[in-house]
Design a protein around this nucleic acid. Structure first.
Length: 306
DNA sequence: TTTATTTACCGCCAGA
DNA sequence: GCTCTGGCGGTAAATA
């Protein structure tokens, strides 16, 4: 709940109009939070979901207890009229109970994934990723993953500049891709030899020098380890590969330049380490579904709407 | 969009 | 015997 309030509910004087209007609602205007540790009272009841573009379903206090039928009805109604549904953590139980994720994958906190599968065996439950965005329904694992999902949604709604502004205000250093693992394991190598510092320095260096041609071998050399070890460390600690990490860093930088400058595509490509505009186009399209020019046209206006 | 080339990934193995 | 590392080679993916 606090993640949603922080990202979507906070007043942001840097934007006019505000990117979002935010309302907390609950049956009877009250809800038990954090397994009943405290109760939240709010001004709105579930009728507020009838006009929302996005309905966020935070964690359910007790996934083993029956869901509140009024909440399920509100979720179904919102889904029917085309509102976007978002769940955090055990909120996935409510989406499943409402029958709105029968056809799509749903992410859930790893601790509750087996129970969700047991209760709803026909649903594709993802406990290995941070979040899943199916367009009309998005779901995430625990609280930190919820933050990743929220920033992903802000970027989808308002572009990379607004998302980065929100991220900075949160002092949230790195937005993680949804496909990354829920578990971040610290490699024993890093603990014993301090090589995590080497890796961190290598990644910092790469982010500061994206205009250079950086190969996996270069990254490995900067991190003072072999290519084989680099692959292992990436797989274990981040659930991705060196190249995929590098590509994401390049695309993020490119989107920022597209949105905040008038640089021509060749210059943007060069600044971000894409050797040709065609390569830039491929990755921007992959990430956003838009060509670089279309992305720029879509987000060039710094004042967000809606 | 297609094609050829380069590079990355990953499983396996041997050595420390 | 276990863990970690680095190299090799086949396959897949990326890139020009």
């Amino acid at each position: 709940m606090s993640v949603a309030a922080e990202v979507f509910g906070l007043h942001r004087p840097e934007f006019d109009p505000q990117p979002y209007t935010f309302t907390i609602c609950a049956p009877d205007g009250e809800a038990a939070m954090r397994d009943g540790v405290f109760r939240l009272s709010c001004d709105a009841d579930l009728r507020a979901t009838r006009r929302a573009d996005t309905v966020i379903v935070p964690n359910r206090p007790d996934p083993l207890a029956p869901a509140d039928p009024r909440v399920l009805q509100a979720i179904r109604s919102a889904h029917r009229r085309g509102a976007r549904l978002v769940s955090f953590c055990t909120g996935a139980f409510n989406l499943a109970a409402a029958g709105v994720v029968d056809e799509v994958s749903v992410a859930c906190h790893w601790r509750w994934a087996d129970e969700l599968r047991r209760q709803y065996p026909h649903i594709d439950v993802r406990s290995d990723v941070l979040y899943v965005d199916n367009g009309s329904v998005a779901s995430s694992a625990g609280s930190a993953a919820a933050l990743d999902l929220c920033l992903h949604l802000v970027q989808r709604d308002h572009g990379v500049i607004v998302a980065q502004s929100v991220s900075r205000r949160l002092v949230f250093a790195v937005h993680r891709d949804g496909g990354q693992r829920q578990f971040i394991e610290r490699p024993r190598l890093a603990q014993s030899m301090g090589s995590s510092d080497g890796l961190a320095m290598a990644l910092s260096w790469a982010e500061a020098h994206l205009d250079l041609e950086i190969s996996v071998a270069t990254l490995a050399s900067r991190a003072a380890m072999s290519v084989s070890s680099l692959h292992r460390v990436f797989h274990t600690s981040m659930g991705t590969t060196p190249l995929r990490w590098l590509q994401r860093a390049r695309v993020t930088a490119a989107l920022e330049l597209l949105q905040s400058t008038d640089l021509d595509l060749a210059t943007v490509a060069r600044h971000c380490g894409f050797r040709t505009v065609a390569t830039l186009r491929t990755y921007v399209s992959q990430e956003t579904g838009l060509t670089p020019s279309a992305f720029r046209s879509r987000w060039r206006d710094p004042v967000p709407a809606g």
